[in-house]
Design a protein around this nucleic acid. Structure first.
Length: 853
RNA sequence: GGGCGCAUAGCUCAGUUGGCUAGAGCGCCGCCCUUACAAGGCGGAUGUCGGGGGUUCGAGUCCCUCUGCGCCCA
């Protein structure tokens, strides 16, 4: 019988659409939630940023994860493989503003009947409430998510499409807010006044990623500070920002600087403002810069912030959110003369204040010489025109060990509990955690994002009392404090004296992303699911976000559950373009994946991706895709041939030594691939499978072809067919994680069900069939066969040309093995008379038969 | 300035606790219409394993050092 359905002309065309649809229909990858935690392999899939553009970098790392998922599924695990979309944050905010012609005004009430303007006008954006804005974000990102999903399906990712989430979705908001409230109740979240990079034009905090340095002219002013011990002695500092003199909290010099060592621990008095400040030592003070001793102000630049923080200095801000000198005279300025000086600059822009302070210093004789003009780098918001100020604002923080050595040690320990792939990535985690010097700032002065779910009571003058926090009930989450009302208050009392106000901020996107295991796994929403999938088995991610995504996830899980969020971290590398630059949208060197899938097939593109070793940056290389395509086609043809021999059963006795040897080799291959996969080294698993496969088709199949066709050598033919069937079965399975389409196609020719739920091959079972087979024979036979071919190639004759006589000389062991294959070697090489002789290595000498026309 | 990684054939890369003459594919050259595959097959040539030093019977592999490149942090 032939139970096979082998097509006449196998092709890769159309496989992707056909099998993607079949898997979807059959629910091949649907998570079976009756399985218990020990039967489950769960994946904390990275949610890609839904920004409307796709590139091959996406394909690369997601393929790695899918190969692992498919392997584990074949190992019998029920794989929990969800998909998330990262549509939270600024990129989406900007796109929505431009696309719909709207802007977010959190003070506005929610309008359930709102619809965006028919013809968006970027210059006259319609102001809408935060909830309306978020709804538009969701609408727009859904379109992008459809495009991503099509790509993922086409690529063959074995995702359970019933398990999806959006980082701005209601569930993500609920999880983010709930986790935050738990942190707050346990004392892990707190608010504090802290210095923030601030754009005075836009009146917004600016993130590190939005900074740019610009060269600007400046001038050093040399200013004398009388020492307290002897007011006739002055210490001279040089500063480019004399307007901040009233904000001076200390002078600082390098600890090794002998000029200033006697002053450490003493105090000096600021000129014109008469404030006594200490002289301190810090490594970052540069003896070569200016006079070698600097004025620390709160805050002139980022170094001031570091000094202020590390030296525990007081906070004396004088610049307001509008960039002007604060109107009220600060409490640390006490003498009437100093107060008069301050009043002279109060309310001025920093530019005007600088002129006035310099004038006052000139009058008092505390400035020396002319200003020395320089060019220096100044930090700007990338879209701003004025230099950034550093202002102190009230922000929310979560403890991450940055200020607590005990917690830090616990988090370092957590990092060492994670199994890292590759192992050296652990060091990056440790370096980061050990180098932390502050807690995690999670509040952002943005519109789009998960709102901080709090309100504050307002005093009788309408000023917020930040110590009187009002939290929502957990059951009411998610909430938007800008439209929802705290318990016990009338909506009318919003922003009224004696009433309440919403916290205006949203959370950092990492505050949500740090909870992806909880979001996807049903934490607090579906405790039964959560128990079956957590802690997650593997977190796949890129190396540059170990310090952000990975670390913050560990922090949340440690604080909430006192355990790891995931057991393994699989770190992927980047895609580099052929010039070895990181591929990114801004460089314009991005290759879009759909065209590649069309040209080379999904299996071929996956082959390229899977060749990239874990954690290693990999060059974009269509050459690898061509090889992958060739491999997939070869798999079709070789399978067609094997099945065409009716080699579909492996229950016949495997009697021939060559066949046993092949199976011994196969068992070894399976074992190596399995070991590699267990170590998350999918690339190695592919390599060993591929290496075996080419040897199988090039040599073994050629060798046993004649015997397998034989009608006289019944036992020999049966043995060959059984070995072929066994090998084909195992090979398809070894390749299934990498080439899901072509292996499924071939599987369907002769087997029932999906290959992707069939059991991973067992090296023990294959070894049992191999009996006393000697794997070393495979290489010897290949070598002999290769030399027989070479002799024909050298003689420029067809491979079918008849060899009259051949002598193989080889070592005793090799000869022993080769003689067992003599029959097959003779038929494969068309050798009429084959004899063996003693020698060192395998050498074949032949006498070709006279050509017969 | 600190940390991590990389450097092997013209190209892209393997090379596992040190072990026979360092491998694969692409590309290149030659041959073969061969009854699974000519969009294929078979065969061939190609190396100062970045430089220098050390440990060892033996080093691409371990140690030191230098150079170049990448990333993260300061």
């Amino acid at each position: 019988m032939t139970g096979t359905r082998v097509p006449e002309k196998p092709t890769l065309d159309g496989l992707e659409d056909r099998w993607a649809a079949a898997w979807d229909q059959q629910g091949s990858y649907t998570f079976d939630r009756t399985k218990t935690r020990d039967q489950v392999f769960s994946i904390d899939t990275p949610p890609p940023t839904v920004s409307g553009s796709l590139h091959v970098g996406h394909v690369f790392s997601y393929t790695h994860t899918d190969c692992m998922a498919r392997y584990k599924r074949m190992r019998g695990y029920e794989v929990f493989y969800p998909m998330g979309w990262d549509d939270n944050g600024l990129p989406t905010e900007r796109r929505v503003q431009n696309f719909y012609g709207v802007r977010c005004d959190p003070s506005l009430p929610y309008d359930p009947d709102f619809s965006p303007p028919a013809t968006p006008d970027a210059k006259q954006q319609v102001a809408i409430s935060r909830r309306n804005f978020i709804e538009l974000c969701e609408q727009l990102t859904v379109e992008d998510e459809v495009v991503f999903e099509q790509l993922w399906r086409r690529l063959g990712l074995s995702i359970d499409w019933s398990q999806t989430y959006q980082t701005i979705g209601a569930n993500s908001q609920m999880v983010s807010q709930l986790a935050f409230l738990r942190n707050l109740k346990r004392g892990e979240a707190y608010q504090a006044e802290a210095p923030t990079l601030w754009d005075v034009t836009f009146r917004t905090a600016v993130a590190q990623a939005e900074l740019e340095d610009r060269e600007r002219p400046g001038a050093y002013h040399r200013i004398g500070f009388p020492t307290t011990l002897d007011p006739s002695t002055k210490v001279f500092i040089e500063t480019t920002r004399p307007e901040l003199l009233a904000a001076c909290v200390a002078l600082v010099a390098h600890p090794d600087d002998e000029r200033y060592q006697p002053l450490f621990g003493t105090t000096v008095t600021s000129p014109i403002f008469g404030v006594e400040v200490p002289v301190v030592a810090h490594q970052l003070a540069d003896p070569e810069k200016g006079s070698g001793i600097a004025m620390i102000c709160t805050f002139g630049d980022l170094t001031d912030v570091i000094w202020w923080r590390e030296l525990q200095l007081p906070t004396r801000p004088i610049i307001g959110w509008d960039g002007r000198i604060l109107p009220e005279t600060p409490e640390w300025i006490t003498t009437s003369e100093a107060k008069a000086h301050y009043e002279h600059i109060a309310g001025a822009t920093s530019h005007t204040a600088k002129e006035r302070v310099v004038a006052l210093l000139n009058q008092s004789g505390d400035i020396v010489g002319e200003p020395r003009e320089i060019m220096h780098q100044v930090k700007f918001f990338e879209k701003g025109d004025k230099p950034l100020e550093i202002v102190t604002t009230r922000q929310w923080y979560i403890s991450n060990g940055g200020r607590d050595p005990e917690l830090r040690a616990e988090l370092v320990k957590r990092g060492s509990e994670i199994r890292w792939h590759p192992a050296h990535m652990k060091v990056r985690y440790e370096n980061w955690v050990e180098g932390l010097n502050g807690d995690w700032l999670i509040s952002r002065q943005r519109f789009f994002g998960v709102p901080i779910p709090l309100w504050y009571r307002l005093d009788s003058e309408g000023n917020p009392i930040y110590s009187e926090i009002m939290m929502p009930e957990e059951a009411d989450l998610p909430i938007d404090p800008s439209t929802d009302t705290p318990a016990g208050f009338d909506p009318q009392s919003r922003n009224q004296p004696g009433g309440f106000m919403a916290d205006p901020d949203v959370m950092d996107t990492w505050a949500t992303s740090s909870l992806t295991p909880q979001i996807a796994g049903g934490w607090e929403r579906d405790p039964d699911l959560w128990a079956r999938v957590s802690p997650v088995d593997v977190r796949p991610q890129a190396h540059e976000i170990i310090r952000t995504w990975l670390f913050s996830t560990v922090v949340r899980s440690h604080l909430e559950d006192n355990r790891l969020p995931f057991l393994n971290a699989a770190i992927s590398g980047w895609i580099l373009d052929p010039d070895r630059k990181k591929m990114s949208k801004s460089k314009g060197n991005v290759v879009t994946p759909m065209g590649l899938l069309d040209e080379y097939s999904a299996d071929a593109v996956r082959y390229w991706a899977a060749s990239g070793r874990p954690g290693t940056d990999t060059a974009f290389d269509v050459g690898q895709m061509k090889i992958g395509r060739r491999l997939a086609i070869k798999l079709l043809n070789a399978s067609k041939f094997v099945l065409g021999l009716d080699a579909t059963q492996n229950d016949a006795a495997i009697s021939e030594d060559v066949d046993k040897a092949l199976l011994a080799q196969l068992a070894k291959t399976v074992e190596q691939a399995t070991t590699a996969f267990e170590d998350f080294n999918y690339a190695r698993a592919l390599e060993v499978a591929e290496s075996f496969f080419w040897n199988f088709t090039d040599d073994y199949v050629e060798l046993v072809k004649v015997r397998a066709y034989s009608e006289t050598d019944v036992a020999g033919a049966a043995s060959a067919k059984a070995a072929l069937a066994t090998t084909l079965d195992a090979l398809l399975k070894l390749f299934a994680p990498f080439l899901p389409f072509v292996t499924e196609e071939v599987w369907s020719w002769w087997q029932e069900g999906t290959i992707h739920r069939s059991p991973w091959p067992s090296s023990e079972a294959i070894l049992a069939l191999a009996g006393n087979g000697d794997a070393a024979m495979v290489a010897d036979v290949s070598e002999a066969l290769s030399q027989i071919r070479k002799s024909k190639s050298d003689a420029k004759v067809s491979m079918r040309a008849v060899i009259e006589s051949a002598v193989i000389s080889a070592s005793e062991d090799q000869n022993k093995r080769l003689q067992l294959a003599a029959k097959d070697l003779s038929s494969a090489g068309s050798i009429q008379s084959l004899t063996f002789a003693a020698g060192a290595n395998i050498e074949v000498s032949v006498v070709l038969a006279a050509a017969t026309e």
